[in-house]
Amino acid sequence: MRNSSLFFLYLSAGVFLLGLLLVHASFSTNARQESLDEKSAMVKALRLTDLCLFTEARYTRHLSQADLNTAFQDHPLSLEHFPSGSFTQPPEGITQRHESLD
């Protein structure tokens, strides 16, 4: 078989597989709707505010409820040291400047 035929065969297989994955994504989203509804219902019933992603510290467990000075919660010079802190950012409201003081 010619090299170009092999290349186009691979390309077609790639496009087909990618299309298949998109179909899988679409079907899975529909199939998991029940599970999403269950989680959403639990959030509503228990009045939860956060996802259980990082349980290592209270401010990473409840990201949206974290103290305003989270990094310094243990002592004034305590820097953020939990690994999950490197994935997340402080809540938007904390980093917003209301007025420039310069």
Binding site: A25, C52, L53
Partner: peptide, 19 residues
């Protein structure tokens, strides 16, 4: 990296939101 120092990490399957 996501687990970090936590011993209790949720086992969850992400819904594939790909477009």
């Amino acid at each position: 990296a996501l687990k970090g120092w936590s011993n209790l990490y949720p086992n969850f399957e992400l819904t594939p939101f790909v477009n």
